[in-house]
Computed example of a mutant assay.
Amino acid sequence: MSKAIHELTFEEALAELEHIVRALEGGGLPLEETMALYERGRALADRCQQLLQEAQLRVQLLERNESGAIHLTPFEG
């Protein structure tokens, strides 16, 4: 059984998404299975995007110092 999408790491989600893309490109699947794979693939793509956005926020955060200058600081969530 596949892990729940919200439990997957970026690497796991991307690997599964690549597998799904290959299966869909290969064709020959029944419509019901094709649709199920497509829906899971969309959810996996969304998960990858979410994790990338979270990583970007952790790497840097724009802040304004007392003089009004903007600088980047590490995000410590």
Rank of each mutant, 00 (worst) to 15 (best):
I20C: 04
E25M: 06
I70N: 00
N65R: 06
H6D: 06
P30N: 14
M35S: 10
E76Q: 12
K3F: 09
E32A: 00
E54D: 12
H19W: 00
E54Y: 09
L62V: 07
L37R: 08
A13K: 04
G77L: 02
I20E: 07
A13P: 01
L37W: 02
A23C: 09
E39R: 14
M1P: 15
L14I: 10
R47E: 03
H6C: 02
R47V: 03
M35E: 15
S2Y: 14
L37M: 04
H71D: 07
G27K: 02
A23E: 10
G27T: 04
F75C: 03
G68V: 08
I70W: 07
A4T: 13
R64A: 03
A36F: 07
Q53A: 13
A36D: 11
T9M: 08
L51C: 06
E63M: 13
A4L: 11
S2A: 14
L57I: 06
T34G: 05
S67E: 14
R64K: 10
A23M: 10
R22G: 04
P30A: 14
G68P: 02
R64I: 05
E16P: 03
A45P: 00
K3C: 02
Y38F: 10
I20Q: 03
E63R: 15
L31K: 15
Q53L: 09
N65P: 02
D46H: 08
L17V: 08
G41C: 02
Q56I: 05
Y38W: 06
E12G: 07
Q56N: 09
G77F: 05
A13Q: 05
E25G: 12
L14H: 12
F75L: 04
R42T: 08
E32C: 00
R47T: 03
R22V: 09
E18F: 09
L52M: 11
L8Q: 02
I5E: 01
P30H: 14
L52E: 11
E18C: 00
Q56T: 06
L62H: 08
L72I: 03
L17K: 13
F75D: 03
E33G: 12
E33D: 15
E11D: 11
E33A: 15
P30V: 13
L44G: 02
A45T: 06
E25V: 07
L44M: 01
E7P: 07
L51F: 05
R42L: 08
L57F: 08
R64C: 02
A4R: 12
Q49C: 09
M1T: 15
L44I: 01
L24A: 03
Q60K: 09
V21D: 13
L44A: 05
E32Q: 09
Y38K: 11
